[in-house]
């Protein structure tokens, strides 16, 4: 099987002179559940915004040999890069099934759109199973619990045929149970996806991260496994303040 990867080189985002992301290099392989962490204002979300076309950036972000920077949001999405947002943004007035069906349909023929849906597309069926939403398919997305909305978002990325999944704080505000289920869900999808998770939750990170990239003030300061990153003095300094050294668990 071919291995896909996301390759970021020298990525830089500046707003009116303020440099939010300053020359970040990062390579994420398929099958690797990568967590992106850092203090507030480190540039994590901005990095995701730059890759998905929401913020102009310089440098390079390539997936599948395609340069993503400079493309429009919907073109990047069609190139196989999908994202979620910090606040779950599902279509609240539509049902779970309709949400997923829309996500599956960006490449449908125009005229076909004028017909009603006859059957549930197999990819949608599969995504509902993977995310455990099959029983809720006719429920309005607005009525779902917080965790279910996030799963629906992940399901939408799956049917969208995104190979790169960029998830912005998927477990924020979730209960412990929901976190665990989300972690298992991410493990299931990482086999055939490139997954990058922006996260603040250290417990979640420790439990599920295959690898971790640490950003601070727009720069990458460490990368490696959880243990490697944790042992890095610069990371300890950022998280605990200068002069401290954390115990290594």
């Amino acid at each position: 099987m071919r291995q896909d990867y996301l390759e970021i080189r020298g990525l830089r985002v500046a707003f009116d002179g303020f440099v939010a992301v300053d020359g970040v290099d990062m390579t994420v392989l398929q099958g690797d559940l990568r967590f992106l962490i850092g203090p507030n204002g480190a540039g994590k979300t901005t990095l995701v915004d730059a890759i998905t076309g929401l913020t102009p950036a310089t440098g390079s972000a390539k997936f599948d040999g395609v340069q993503l920077l400079g493309k429009k949001e919907h073109q990047i999405a069609r190139a196989g890069v999908g994202r979620t947002f910090q606040t779950a943004s599902v279509f609240e007035q539509l049902t779970v099934l309709q949400n997923l069906d829309i996500a599956a349909g960006a490449t449908r023929r125009r005229l076909g759109l004028l017909r009603a849906r006859r059957a549930v597309p197999p990819s949608v069926e599969l995504a509902m199973e993977t995310t455990g939403l099959t029983r809720l398919r006719d429920r309005l997305a607005g009525e779902l619990a917080h965790g279910q909305k996030q799963w629906l978002e992940i399901g939408m990325l799956l049917v969208q045929n995104a190979t790169v999944l960029l998830l912005d704080e998927p477990v924020a505000g979730m209960s412990a149970d929901e976190r665990e289920q989300t972690g298992e869900l991410l493990r299931r999808v990482r086999r055939d996806h490139v997954v990058v998770v922006v996260e603040h939750d250290m417990e979640f990170l420790r439990a599920y991260a295959d690898s971790v990239t640490v950003l601070a003030a727009g720069k990458k300061i460490a990368e490696g496994t959880y243990a490697q990153v944790q042992a890095d003095p610069r990371v300890q300094e950022i998280y605990l303040g200068p002069g401290h050294t954390a115990e290594v668990s």
């Binding site: 199973e129 965790g147 279910q148 989300t182 493990r187 668990s249």
Partner: peptide, 26 residues
Amino acid sequence: PVPAGPALVDDPGPASAVPAVHTGGA
């Protein structure tokens, strides 16, 4: 009633044994 969450089926990945969660540390 709303079902609890994603069906915990399929392969949970190589690192299925969730490491015991410690508090503190990095």
